[in-house]
Design a protein around this nucleic acid. Structure first.
Lengths: 155, 155
DNA sequence: CTTTAATATAAGTATATACACATATTAATT
DNA sequence: AATTAATATGTGTATATACTTATATTAAAG
């Protein structure tokens, strides 16, 4: 039957496509890796994503939602909600700027101290990855990700 | 003041860490790329993630949630919900297996025809990436992602 | 100075994700 | 056969993500 042939083709195609698809593989690896970070940060009640965001808040001082959204490549509405989670945990404050449309985000003392606890945990994951995958492969991967995201940012 | 020094250190550290963090960069690139796929699939009302999942359903015939969850590296509960979205769209069916705990997932005719529309759209993105980033870099990235996910699966 | 346009953020809606726990079903033990 | 253990999936809860739309504020045009 023709339908069986089409099915068979689709069957093989789907496997090939899954292997070749940058999006699928990026996302799949992301799922696996984020679970590892989440485990590592569990003792201090943080998620991997929250660690990243808190680090960004620490790095870009008194930034607005819009300013933060650019280096993070995150939708402002998404960022707004993610910041609210950190605020609820008492790790950042949100204050109205001179321009009263803007909200300026600042890390709290509690946020700094959580970061100080988090850093060695992050480093543990990072070193474990470097150890098992090799420093060079990590560097390579980071370079490739950087190239790809640069390219995508221009769209 | 001491606190200023600490702040300054944290400031620089956060930038360095952001650049070096595999998790952050993987996720950031993922965000950017998935937006591109979502745009591409928009004409047929599909998201990038849904395309991947539907392809997997087509590839692993009559698979259960548990069986699908392994190659996708996705939590079974997550998969369960994602499959429900495809079912709501009429793209897959969910039927009780011989073992009545299991649910067997099957692509529908409508699902096949959506996939056939989706494939050229996917290919468009894939070729655009290969064109702009270079075939070799794509291959390299895929290899690195594969290595990393293999490593993470063993944890 | 008033109206209009631009900008910054939040809220509404939908999906993706995972962990912990609950439920149903099958397999294993005694 | 009855009880217990293992397995497959779904639900509750919380967060992450983005698009669209709403709201408030500032800037620009007239």
């Amino acid at each position: 039957m023709v339908s069986c042939k089409i099915d068979q083709e689709l069957n093989e195609l789907s496997i090939r496509t899954g292997n070749a698809c940058v999006g699928f593989n990026l996302r799949k690896t992301s799922r696996l890796l984020m679970r590892l970070y989440d485990q590592a940060f569990k003792p201090i009640g943080l998620k991997g994503t929250q660690f990243s965001l808190l680090m960004a808040v620490a790095g870009y001082k008194d930034a607005t939602i819009g300013e933060l959204s650019q280096p993070l490549c995150m939708e402002r509405s998404t960022l707004s909600r993610n910041i609210a989670v950190l605020q609820k945990k008492g790790l950042v404050t949100i204050e109205e700027g001179e321009d009263r449309r803007q909200q300026r985000i600042r890390i709290t003392d509690s946020g700094v101290s959580v970061l100080q606890e988090a850093l060695p945990l992050w480093q543990g994951v990072q070193e474990s990855l470097a150890g098992e995958l090799g420093e060079e492969r990590i560097t390579n991967l980071l370079k490739d990700l950087h190239n790809l995201s640069q390219l995508l940012k221009e769209k």
